[in-house]
Nucleic acid binder design. Structure first.
Lengths: 199, 199
DNA sequence: CTTACCATGTAAACCGTTACATGATTCT
DNA sequence: AGAATCATGTAACGGTTTACATGGTAAG
């Protein structure tokens, strides 16, 4: 991430700010990780730094890419997509939730989850509105840079929308299950074949 | 994860196998992590263990939940959904890909990404077919246990479908951009207002 | 006899978080 | 005078991966 952001020279502090308005949506990082990583990358020859006195506050150590750093970035970009091993704790909680033995726990869980996902979706939609509204500070979606960044935003939007759709599906099925048990109609009295009902 | 799986007593080796056919889709783990974690949890009073000689191979250390372990599991399930800080390296690669300055890199990247996502989607669809086909070894989706597990699978399915949809959108837009540049028609000659085109 | 599977671990390295530490400048 | 922001870091802890280490049993 740092190599990617350092196409313009910047200090650790700068980089953290850039992180927080762009990259953090798919890769958060703390200052306490940024500084040592910059030091290590300089040691490894991917970066070089210069001390510059700033207009306000103490001196800034401004990093920029070396040839090796730029090569490392390009190599990473040409790698296979790094899908890796994602960990979704919220799915795990849901997966084991039958142990709580209470449908209300599940309903409350999914409702809260959906609330948080909707909040995130709205954040993304707000950014998209500003972007397409032509705000300065966002790169033109017609440029190569703007296209890649804008589509990254779109990926977040579609991801949230899909997760919210799943929440709605879960809630729908929970309601149907509930109805089936409390007011048994045709559905509730269906025969099961070998203890298992086909959907 | 281990607490969730240990609703039935099991050894580390067993747990790893259960991981690999269920939990790993949203939380992978290695044996070298399972064993020390079980030891730590026993030290912390969440688990108790018994040495049992097995029919084949060496003795097995079989773990089961203590009261505290079960309470810890239930507390986790009643927590807020743990959305946490996801890291999506493949989005990061895409985000910075303008640095490669070559649209073919992007096209190839998204094509490969979509291939891998489709492979995963097909895995999930295969599992769903077996499940709904009434295979033994899958819990009844009408039971509480089966419902939670089946919907966890559905979340993976919808997730993959959404990601694939995004890939298709990216490819569509790349093709349109390409056409706009190589055979400029009405689209390609559109005037830009202040260097920025509204979509 | 060799391969695969059963079964349990340890060690080293890296990644990431939280908390701690320091000190200057600018704004209210 | 106090709060926010600029600016740079260290330390301790826990999670995760890769590689290493060991040895028994069963099937081809």
């Amino acid at each position: 991430m740092l190599l990617g952001l350092l196409q313009v020279p910047a200090s650790g502090y700068d980089l953290k700010k850039h992180f927080d308005c762009t990259v953090r949506f798919f890769w958060p990082a703390e200052l306490s990780q940024v500084y040592p990583t910059l030091q290590r990358m300089e040691r490894d020859g991917l970066l070089k730094s210069q001390l510059k006195s700033s207009s306000k506050g103490p001196k800034r150590r401004v990093y920029s890419l070396t040839k090796e750093g730029r090569d490392a970035l390009l190599a990473w970009l040409r790698n296979d997509p790094a899908l890796g091993d994602q960990r979704y704790e919220f799915i795990a909680q849901f997966f084991f939730m039958d142990a709580a033995d209470d449908e209300h726990v599940t309903t409350r869980y999914i409702t809260r989850l959906r609330g948080e996902l909707v909040r995130r979706l709205e954040t993304y939609e707000q950014i998209e509105r500003e972007w397409l509204g032509g705000e300065e500070s966002y790169p033109d979606p017609d440029s190569s840079r703007g296209f890649h960044r804008y589509m990254a935003l779109r990926s977040g939007l579609l991801h949230m929308a899909a997760r919210i759709g799943w929440c709605n599906d879960v809630l729908r099925r929970l309601a149907r299950r509930h109805k089936g048990r409390t007011r048994p109609g045709k559905r509730g009295t269906q025969k099961r074949i070998a203890g298992r009902r086909k959907i």
